[in-house]
């Protein structure tokens, strides 16, 4: 059976959840992050820091923790950068510390923490989603839930294009290095090498878009009928449980937030 070969099999129960259920988990997780980021302790949204631990736990349960941590290292560098910039640049509120020429005001620290941790939270949630879900599963599931097949095509082909561009740009970068263009070194040097390398990529993408559209039409893309799929995305059976857990946790967070707000 050939079709069997192209099905996606998962043994882990969390990872095997239906793609849109995982999308809901990301949604509820983000809602909780948002709610928690409005709770200030000593003027700082401290609660979102322990809340972030939920993600590594989720990744461990899904069996993807090592990839997860690896991916999050990159996000962490960006988050730290943003944290530092925000903290030291935004004036306003009380002066908390100062050493030498560096001043930290409470407003800056507040924005620094909430922005950087929120980035980690949202990025982390999506990293988890895409490490446990292939794009084609997600788009297949969304199509099943009523998303237009054209939207699904755009979603999938964009992701594949990005993937392909990544691979091609490596080839082009290597070619440029062979011609003596500096492609390694600091950020500035890399950027200088990167942008010219993208030009042929983007040009060829634009020029061939006519052909691509026509080739798609030749494969019956525009024919109005119920489309079929050889890829099946199945429910694992734990979706309701997962949703109940999400809703309970989100309710607790929401109720807690409202209580804090109305209690004196």
């Amino acid at each position: 059976m050939w079709i069997e070969k192209f099905q996606i099999k998962k043994t882990n129960r969390v990872a095997a959840l239906y793609p849109t259920t995982k999308l809901w988990i990301v949604f509820f997780y983000s809602v909780c992050s948002l709610l928690l980021s409005t709770v200030n302790i000593m003027g700082i949204p401290l609660l979102i820091i322990p809340w972030f631990l939920v993600l590594p736990i989720l990744a461990t349960l899904s069996g993807v923790i090592s990839q997860f941590l690896k991916a999050m290292k990159k996000a962490a560098i960006i988050a730290i950068f943003i944290f530092l910039v925000q903290t030291f640049i935004i004036p306003g509120g009380d002066l908390l510390f100062h050493f030498g020429i560096l001043y930290i005001y409470s407003d800056g620290l507040h924005t620094g923490v909430s922005l950087s941790v929120s980035i980690l939270n949202i990025a982390g949630a999506f990293v988890w989603l895409f490490q446990t879900t292939e794009m084609k599963e997600l788009s297949r599931a969304l199509e099943d839930k009523g998303m237009n097949y054209k939207a699904s095509y755009i979603l999938l082909s964009t992701m594949q294009m990005i993937d392909l561009m990544g691979r091609n740009s490596k080839i082009i970068m290597n070619a440029q290095r062979a011609r003596g263009v500096e492609t390694q070194g600091n950020l500035f040097v890399r950027a200088k090498a990167f942008f010219p390398s993208m030009v042929p990529l983007i040009l060829s993408a634009i020029i061939s878009s006519d052909d691509r559209a026509l080739a798609l039409s030749s494969k019956g893309f525009e024919i109005k009928c119920k489309k079929t799929h050889i890829l099946n995305v199945e429910y694992s059976g734990n979706e309701t449980l997962a949703m109940v857990i999400c809703i309970i946790i989100t309710s607790i967070v929401a109720i807690g937030r409202v209580l804090l707000w109305i209690l004196p």
Binding site: W2, K5, F6, K136, Y153, L156, S157, Q160, M161, S208, D211, R212, L214, A215, L216, S218, K219
Partner: peptide
Amino acid sequence: FQNPFNQISGVKDSVF
């Protein structure tokens, strides 16, 4: 079409 590369749908990751 003349150019085979442009005919790849871009949404499938196997020839099958």
